[in-house]
Amino acid sequence: MSSIKHMVTFSLHSGKNNPETEAFLQISREELAAIPGVEQFEVFRQVSAKNEFDYGFSMVFADQSAYDAYNNHPVHIKYVEERWNTKVSRFQEIDLVVHQ
């Protein structure tokens, strides 16, 4: 199996382009990118009028076991409970592998 590209697009209760939102994005980058197995962590700002979400995260995992380890890592679990579930108003998640 090839690597997994995990992406999530989302909007925040705090809206766009303000100090609270910038703090959320920075803390997310620091905490999530440091979890073992996370590769190529990126933060995006949405620019398409065709998408209803404001921001996005993208990361790559070498394989399913690396992705599972990330999902079950204590830092990720705490992040979801304390940050994601309280700050994110809506989101869509997608996981992709290269089509062969």
Rank of each mutant, 00 (worst) to 15 (best):
E31I: 11
V75Q: 01
Q100G: 03
F91W: 04
K16Q: 14
I94M: 10
S58F: 05
R29P: 05
P36W: 00
E30F: 07
A66W: 08
S28N: 09
Q100A: 00
F10G: 11
K50N: 01
S58Y: 04
Q46N: 01
E20N: 10
V75N: 00
M7E: 13
F91K: 06
I35E: 01
I94E: 05
R90E: 13
S28I: 06
F41R: 03
Y67T: 11
Q100H: 02
M1T: 15
V75E: 02
T21Y: 12
R45V: 13
Q40Y: 03
H76P: 02
H99L: 08
Q92I: 01
R45W: 11
S28W: 06
A69S: 14
Y55E: 01
N71D: 11
D63M: 02
D63R: 00
Q92V: 06
D63N: 09
G56E: 09
E93H: 04
M59Y: 00
Q64K: 13
E82Y: 01
S65T: 13
A62V: 07
E82L: 04
V88T: 10
E30Q: 13
N18A: 10
W84G: 04
E22A: 02
P19D: 03
I27R: 01
F53A: 04
D95N: 01
F91Y: 09
I35M: 08
I94G: 07
V60D: 00
K87R: 15
P74K: 12
S14M: 15
F61Y: 11
E81S: 07
D68N: 03
G37E: 12
G56C: 12
E39P: 03
V98N: 05
T86R: 14
V47S: 05
R83E: 06
V60E: 09
K78A: 12
L12F: 15
A23L: 03
Y67F: 15
N18T: 09
A23Q: 04
M7L: 14
H6I: 00
D68I: 08
T9A: 09
F44D: 05
E20K: 13
Q26C: 02
V8G: 03
K5C: 02
S48V: 05
A23K: 02
Y55P: 08
H99C: 06
Q92D: 00
I4A: 06
I35T: 02
Y79G: 06
K16I: 14
A34T: 04
F24K: 00
S89A: 12
W84I: 03
Q40L: 05
V88S: 02
Y55F: 13
M7S: 13
S2L: 11
Y55H: 11
